[in-house]
Simulated scan of single mutants.
Amino acid sequence: MHPQYKADKPIDCPICSMKLVKFEPTPNGENKPMDSMPGMDGSSSSTSSQASNNTIYVDPQRQQLIGVQFAKAITKPLSKELRVVGKVSFDETKITHIHTKVTGYLENVFVDYVGKPVKKGDPLFTIYSPDLVATEQEYLLALRSNKELSKSSFEEVSFGSSSLLEATRKRLKLWDISDKEIEELEIEGKAKRELTFYSPVDGIVTERAAFGHGKFVNPEMDLYSIVDLSTVWIIGEVYEYEMSFVKLGQTVEIEMPYSDKKSLYIGKITYIYPVMDAKTRTAKIRIECKNPQYTFKPEMFVSMKIKINLGTHLVVPEDAVMDTGEEQYVFVD
């Protein structure tokens, strides 16, 4: 604005097109210099006695030149949003390892590749175990003996035969022989050369060491790893300065940034790891999420948003805050 141009009504300046403002003289009839603003030179005037040390006066013309704007301080609810990158992982509580409790040799392998889905009760493989066959024969012998000696007039004899039968039965059960298979053994009356092992859970085969006919196996070998992917863990990393906002049980919005379908999935923070990464200065959090359609696959990267309620506070526009590096302040009209 050009202060030398004056008008008797509010119009635009014909030189610079800025709106003219109403002229209002200072209390002493003179324009007040900006001597009390940090960094401005000027002598004090009589108005300083009417204002406190942290009060400055800027005349309307100068306000127009520097583009001063006014906004009301209001009370409103505040929220904060944390954006976290996460990686999908197995739910470690739903990983099942398949072992045999006897030594033997593989005969047939029904689950023959990694990634194959299995249901609880599906056959995995059959095994020939000389120890198991011998125990089955002992059980059949104890069963026949118990039938003959259970009616003995000597109590010790009948008790001993029943005890032997029960001990042999327990040995079979300790080797994971089901009641159904023991019942079939009793009906057929002869030992089976092969024993079939079944899947104890629903899931996806992620590791396999049962290969081919004749492979020797023992209880130390991990023949299969089966993982239930209906629930997955997502491991996210949160910066150290944001950790104070993260709490157990918070709801997390999850999305796959490279997916055509911008679908949101909901998870919850179930664990906050107690160790900080010294290199990245981040801490890990664990989010548990349902995965009924196997949309999330282990090692997949996802984006997550954590919305935090900060409560109701008095707020001003962000541009109104002056930051000196050591403190923040605003000007109040």
Score class of each variant (00 low, 15 high):
108 N>A: 07
109 V>G: 06
109 V>W: 00
109 V>F: 01
110 F>D: 04
111 V>Q: 06
111 V>L: 08
112 D>A: 12
113 Y>K: 15
113 Y>D: 07
115 G>V: 05
116 K>E: 12
116 K>D: 04
117 P>K: 15
117 P>I: 07
118 V>Q: 03
118 V>Y: 02
119 K>R: 12
119 K>T: 09
120 K>E: 15
121 G>A: 07
121 G>N: 06
123 P>Y: 03
124 L>F: 10
125 F>A: 01
125 F>Y: 11
125 F>P: 01
127 I>N: 08
128 Y>H: 13
129 S>N: 08
129 S>Q: 07
129 S>R: 06
133 V>N: 09
133 V>T: 10
134 A>E: 10
136 E>D: 03
137 Q>C: 05
137 Q>S: 10
138 E>P: 03
138 E>Q: 13
138 E>F: 09
139 Y>C: 04
140 L>F: 02
140 L>T: 03
140 L>Q: 03
142 A>E: 11
143 L>N: 11
143 L>G: 02
144 R>M: 11
145 S>G: 15
145 S>P: 02
147 K>F: 03
147 K>N: 15
147 K>L: 10
147 K>S: 13
148 E>N: 09
148 E>R: 13
149 L>S: 12
150 S>W: 09
150 S>E: 15
150 S>F: 09
153 S>W: 07
154 F>R: 14
155 E>I: 12
156 E>L: 09
157 V>K: 13
158 S>L: 06
159 F>Y: 15
160 G>C: 04
160 G>K: 13
161 S>H: 04
162 S>T: 14
162 S>P: 04
163 S>M: 14
163 S>T: 15
164 L>T: 14
164 L>K: 15
167 A>G: 12
168 T>W: 13
169 R>M: 14
169 R>W: 11
170 K>V: 12
170 K>I: 11
171 R>A: 13
171 R>N: 13
172 L>D: 00
172 L>K: 00
172 L>G: 01
174 L>C: 02
175 W>C: 04
175 W>F: 12
176 D>K: 08
176 D>A: 09
177 I>W: 00
177 I>P: 05
178 S>V: 06
178 S>P: 07
179 D>Q: 10
179 D>G: 13
180 K>S: 10
180 K>A: 13
180 K>E: 09
181 E>M: 09
181 E>P: 00
182 I>D: 03
183 E>R: 06
183 E>P: 01
184 E>P: 00
184 E>V: 00
186 E>Q: 09
189 G>K: 02
189 G>W: 00
190 K>H: 10
190 K>M: 06
193 R>V: 05
194 E>D: 09
195 L>W: 14
195 L>D: 07
195 L>H: 15
196 T>K: 06
197 F>A: 04
197 F>M: 08
198 Y>P: 00
198 Y>N: 08
199 S>T: 10
199 S>K: 07
200 P>I: 12
200 P>G: 11
200 P>A: 08
200 P>S: 13
200 P>E: 11
201 V>M: 03
201 V>A: 11
202 D>F: 08
205 V>S: 01
206 T>Y: 03
207 E>N: 12
207 E>W: 10
207 E>D: 14
207 E>R: 14
207 E>T: 05
208 R>H: 07
208 R>P: 04
209 A>I: 06
210 A>Y: 02
214 G>W: 00
214 G>C: 01
217 V>I: 15
217 V>L: 05
217 V>R: 02
